[in-house]
């Protein structure tokens, strides 16, 4: 018997193990699955190693993928920042376009409501132009450079305006660009009128307001003339350049001048430093006499006031 067992120990062990395993399986078939003493024992034996290895693997994995995620995050951050910059630029351009549209809309409304008495036949067309250079801060020569020239029909001594009022007049017109002598320039002279009292005078540039902004000075005003602070000053139309009725500015200072005259300071209606688009009043017919240099307009023989 012992010899048989020794000779057949392998198959006997094999069969014994199988029988034991079958018993285990059969016991589970009758009872509830999942939580047996054997399961718990085997799990208990291996679980510390498994837990340790899983924790280590998790840390290695986190470190490894965290590194790559970090690299990727940097690249992604760079891409996002580029995209943000592009979109910010795009937004800025769109906002600027919206502002330009609003300005052009204001100009359009201004033109629709423009009523120039006696000048309708002369008013052939109005050319919008962009300001490509602005020299308003130079006390010696306050001029603008427009992106329109003689090819667009611009000539010397054409009024340049905005919806707020008068800017100045064209000075030198090349084929593609033109210069504009600002109303605030020291060499400018515009025949003007106080809208309320109809007092006439010559509005010249070169002055300065208390806050440092350029100002206009209304000359040839008698001490008896009715001019008060806050009065609106408009063009008279007598200089042959500007149509009558365009806004020039508001009286901000009335003081006693030399002799029997008054010193009248006028704040320009147009903020010259912020000009971007202007309108040039192009006239089909302009008399040679009207086109003569009138940088300093002379007072009329008869005072209309």
């Amino acid at each position: 018997m012992a010899g048989f067992i020794v000779r057949r120990k392998d198959p006997l062990l094999f069969v014994t193990v199988l029988v034991v395993l079958l018993c285990i399986l059969a016991s589970q078939a009758e009872n509830e699955l999942g939580d047996s003493l054997l399961t718990r024992t085997v799990m208990q034996a291996f679980s510390p190693f498994v837990r340790l290895s899983a924790g280590t693997s998790q840390k290695v994995r986190d470190t490894w993928f965290g590194y790559f995620n970090l690299v990727d995050a940097r690249a992604k951050n760079r891409r996002t920042m580029d995209q943000y910059d592009r979109q910010a630029l795009e937004l800025s351009l769109l906002r600027e376009r919206l502002r330009a549209y609003e300005r052009s809309e204001a100009l359009h409304q201004f033109l629709e409501g423009l009523n120039l008495p006696g000048e309708e036949d002369l008013l052939q067309s109005i050319h919008p132009a962009l300001v490509i250079a602005n020299n308003h801060w130079d006390e010696q020569s306050r001029i603008l450079l427009l992106n329109r020239g003689s090819s667009a029909g611009l000539k010397r001594n054409m009024p340049v305006i905005t919806s707020d009022g008068v800017v100045g007049k064209t000075m030198t017109c090349t084929t593609l660009v033109s210069t504009v002598l600002l109303a605030t320039d020291v060499n400018s002279g515009i025949s003007a009128r106080v809208a309320r009292s109809r007092v006439w005078g010559i509005l010249t540039g070169g002055g300065q307001l208390a806050d440092g902004r350029p100002a206009l000075t209304m000359q040839h005003i008698s001490s008896l003339d009715d001019v008060a602070e806050g009065d609106l000053v408009i063009t008279s139309g007598l200089d042959g350049i500007y149509p009558a009725g365009l806004v020039l500015g508001t009286v901000v200072l009335v003081d006693e001048g030399p002799g029997l005259s008054k010193q009248v300071g006028v704040a320009p209606a147009v903020e010259m430093s912020r000009l971007e688009e202007v309108l040039v009043l192009v006239r089909e017919e302009q008399l040679p006499s009207q086109l003569a240099d009138r940088d300093s307009a002379e007072p009329p023989e008869e005072d209309p006031s």
Partner: peptide
């Protein structure tokens, strides 16, 4: 040897059963 292989098979199968959650002894067998 066959004894070692048999015992290794049993042990590894039971361990697998314990950790995979299926019927204990199925893989062991």
């Amino acid at each position: 040897s066959r004894v070692q292989s048999t015992l290794l098979g049993t042990a590894s199968g039971l361990t697998q059963d314990a950790f995979t959650g299926i019927v204990f002894g199925l893989n062991g067998f």
